[in-house]
């Protein structure tokens, strides 16, 4: 049903062609084969693995085929704090990214509209972080906020942090890292929406005695909604599954682990494949449900 919510926009009332054309089939085939091999097969394999039972040999990392649904209950029971934390982090980071990105996108898309060089320059700045690897940028953050760094010492000296408090390893560091890394994904879709904003509508708002704030909420924001929705989806979904920022090797500490870290650790450290797979399936299901509710509630099915 979640897929229905997402797919409604495309289900128009134009009648379907009577016969599938051979050309269309040939054009679709590579994509279908690719998805079949690299999406469907792993997905099925994931579900099968999530139901495996511990091997009778009792060796670590050995599992037999089974139908142990309790793997899901176990995973949920064992890792509920990390699951909740993932969604809270993702929610906060998405909102932060929206608050930061919207003014940037508005400035580039509306205010800088008549200055193409400035606009191009600003867009380049937004995309620039993509030129450097995500991992390197996160490592750079780690260096900037290391315990003996000037940045940390400054925060301690002005009293934001207590003398025995540090940035790295805190929830703040992880959320800040997530927000930073996903800002371009939020800014660009909002920019494309705002770039098409008809400024005459804003003028009309002013002519009809609306305050700038009212005009923004009644005219500008609703018109940019498609960008906001796709921006939030593009950030929320990957952030929920992110495991780099929260990893202990990067910005995280011992109490910032997200689902991605739990899955990674279950796979590579204790070789508990069923639990790791169950968690992955649940993460996927949770995201599909959350996103479909979100899309429905925001009443933007037709905008997607």
């Amino acid at each position: 049903m979640a897929f229905v919510a997402l797919g409604q926009g495309s289900a128009g009332n134009s009648s379907a062609p009577k016969k599938a054309s051979r050309v269309a089939f040939i054009l679709l085939a590579p994509g279908m084969i690719y998805l079949g091999l690299f999406f469907l097969t792993p997905l099925v394999s994931l579900v099968i693995t999530s139901l495996k039972t511990a091997s009778f040999t009792g060796e670590i990392g050995m599992y037999d085929y089974g139908f142990q649904v309790s793997n899901y209950a176990y995973a949920l029971d064992q890792y509920l704090p990390q699951i909740t934390r993932s969604f809270i982090y993702a929610l906060i980071a998405t909102l932060m990214a929206l608050l930061i990105s919207y003014p940037i996108a508005y400035f580039i898309g509306v205010k800088a509209r008549n200055k193409p060089i400035l606009q191009a320059f600003l867009l380049t700045l937004v995309i620039a972080p993509f030129f450097i690897s995500f991992l390197l940028r996160t490592f750079a953050w780690k260096q900037i906020f290391s315990n003996e760094s000037p940045a940390t010492q400054f925060l301690q000296s002005i009293g934001v942090l207590a003398p025995d408090q540090y940035v790295i390893g805190s929830s703040f560091a992880v959320i800040a890292g997530l927000t930073y890394n996903f800002i371009p994904f939020m800014t660009l879709p909002i920019y494309t929406s705002l770039e098409r904003l008809d400024t005459r509508l804003v003028e009309a708002g002013a002519d009809l005695y609306a305050t700038p704030v009212q005009t923004f909420w009644k005219v500008t924001f609703p018109l940019s909604l498609p960008g906001v929705i796709s921006g939030t989806l593009l950030t929320f979904i990957p952030i929920s599954g992110d495991y780099v920022s929260a990893s202990r090797d990067f910005l995280g500490g011992s109490d910032t682990a997200m689902i991605g870290n739990v899955v990674e650790s279950n796979f590579f450290r204790i070789q508990d494949y069923p639990t790791a797979s169950a968690l992955s399936v649940m993460l996927m299901a949770a995201i599909v449900v959350l996103v479909s509710v979100y899309v429905r509630k925001s009443g933007t099915e037709e905008l997607l």
């Binding site: 670590i60 890792y79 990390q82 011992s254 910032t256 739990v262 279950n266 508990d272």
Partner: peptide, 20 residues
């Protein structure tokens, strides 16, 4: 450690690493 012990000990230790 036996296989089962290994699995249980490693899981308990891993939970500390994950801050459970």
């Amino acid at each position: 450690l036996t296989g089962q012990e290994e699995q249980r000990f490693a899981t308990a230790w891993q939970n500390v690493l994950l801050g459970a």
